[in-house]
Design a protein around this nucleic acid. Structure first.
Lengths: 104, 104
DNA sequence: TGCGTTTATGTCTAATCTGGCATAAATTTA
DNA sequence: TAAATTTATGCCAGATTAGACATAAACGCA
C-alpha cells in the first residue's frame, strides 16, 4: 500500500496495519504461516498439472479430500510436515522443494 | 560402495543392500527421513556457531534439552514441522532454508 | 581418576494433527 | 437452470508429537 493511500484511509478513520501486526504474530510465526501457504499453493499447482481432483490426490496420499482442501488452503489444522510428505509423495525432489521455498 | 567390494562381501556371505531396502522404505519415506536428518544437522551447526548448549537453545525455543538433542539427531519422535519452526525461530531466512534443503 | 558439564535416551500425559465423515458451497456441464 | 461434479468447512475419535522430567552416557579438565 502506498503512503498516500494509507494516509487517506487513516484520515477516514480506518485502522491500517499489517495482518501480522493485527494478530500480534512474531516474525517467525509469520514466516511459518507464509511458508505453509506457499507449500499449499504449490501442492495445488502440481495437482492441477497432473489434472487430478482433490479426491484423486487424496487417494494417492492415503488421505481424504477434506484434508487436501485444507492443505491447499494452508489451514491451521495442517502441519508443514504433512505438506512436505505430500509433496515428496508426488515425487518432488529436494531441488524442487528448495525452489518452492525460495524461488531463485 | 563400488561393485568390486560389493561382490567380495556377497561372496563372503554378507547380505548387501541399502538401509532403505533393509527397512522396506518407499522412496518418499526415505526422502522424508533424510530431509529430517539434514535439518537436524543444520540446527546443530547453527547452535554451535552461536556457541550455545542444547539447554540454552531449548530455552530460546521454549522447549527442553531432550527435545533439542532429539531434533539434532533426527529422532523419529520429532517432526519436520518442529525443526522448521526452530530454524525460523533462530532467524533462518527462506533463502537459507532452501539452501539447507538443497545445497547449490 | 573423579567431578562438573554437556549430550543422549526413555517414559509420561497434554496438546496437536490426521483421517474419516457429513454437509454446505461453488463450479462445471448438459 | 438443474443436475452432477468438485471444492470448502466443521466436527470428532484415534494417532502422533510436544514439553517435562528422570537418568544414563559421554566429554573435558584439574
Amino acid at each position: 500500500m502506498d503512503k498516500a493511500k494509507r494516509k487517506k484511509l487513516i484520515e477516514q478513520g480506518w485502522i491500517v496495519g499489517s495482518t501480522q501486526d493485527f494478530l500480534g504474530l512474531t516474525d517467525d510465526e509469520t514466516a511459518y504461516i507464509e511458508l505453509k501457504l506457499t507449500l499449499g499453493q504449490n501442492l495445488k499447482k502440481r495437482r492441477l498439472e497432473k489434472e487430478l481432483t482433490q479426491t484423486q490426490l487424496a487417494r494417492l496420499l492415503k488421505s481424504n479430500q477434506s484434508r487436501v482442501a485444507k492443505m491447499e488452503a494452508g489451514d491451521p489444522s495442517v502441519s508443514i510436515d504433512l505438506l512436505i510428505k505430500s509433496l515428496l509423495a508426488l515425487g518432488t525432489s529436494r531441488q524442487e522443494l528448495a525452489a518452492i521455498i525460495a524461488p531463485a
